[in-house]
Write a protein that binds this DNA or RNA. Structure first.
Lengths: 113, 113
DNA sequence: GAATCAATATATAATATATTATAACGTATC
DNA sequence: GATACGTTATAATATATTATATATTGATTC
């Protein structure tokens, strides 16, 4: 680990403070820790999509997709807007978006050291 | 979402490429998506600790802690070194450390906009 | 060098939670 | 009221969590 990172974190939270956030953070991670949900969220980073569009793009059966969307809604990670018969999903402007960006940088941007 | 982020991600991976990584990333997230394991990993960012030290610091029963450590070892997030009767755990120098740093920045550093 | 103790790991089993498929239901439009 | 688009309910299966009990490994003492 880098000395910088170490120093940054060492100066940080107490165990008690850490514990008080661990639950919240762990819940968010749990919500994102399913391949389908991760794909959904990553897709929504590009913009909003209807359920049908997600279904096609991600090749998931419709009720299965809808169930995952329900989980994401429950965690406040996504929000919906209705447009006629269709329902469009988009990312909530929150920590989840930051997390996805971080995940993207860590896992999807090639090492350019 | 910021336009920068959006642009960054839009230029990124195809759905197929994304899918090929979703499994790996989701597994890592799943491993970290438990409050106790998250606390363990966050603690190890400070440096290496023996099981006994972690037990006291995090107030977990020994077998319970050991079970979580086993999960973290299985995912390659931590590694061990033996010193006499004690076993010291430390973070593996990998993506997990980056992720924890990102989580820390997102959730533990106060908004300094 | 066998008995013992301290530190940690593993096995077992009970319970809870998540995943997935299928089927039934709601809601908007025509 | 029929059709398109989504959601929710139900139920079967799989996986995770947790507690308790047992095993392993290294150090110590006799």
């Amino acid at each position: 680990m880098s000395a910088e990172l170490k120093a940054m974190l060492k100066a940080g939270l107490s165990t008690a403070e850490m514990a008080s956030r661990a639950g919240e953070v762990a819940n968010l991670l749990k919500t994102l820790s399913h391949p389908a949900r991760l794909m959904i969220v990553c897709t929504l980073v590009e913009g909003s999509y209807s359920v049908g569009e997600l279904e096609e793009k991600l090749d998931l059966h419709q009720p299965h997709l809808s169930q995952h969307l329900t989980v994401l809604r429950g965690s406040g990670i996504v929000e919906t807007r209705r447009e006629g018969k269709q329902i469009f999903y988009s990312l909530t402007e929150e920590k989840a978006a930051q997390l996805v960006a971080a995940l993207y940088e860590i896992f999807c941007v090639e090492n350019q050291k």
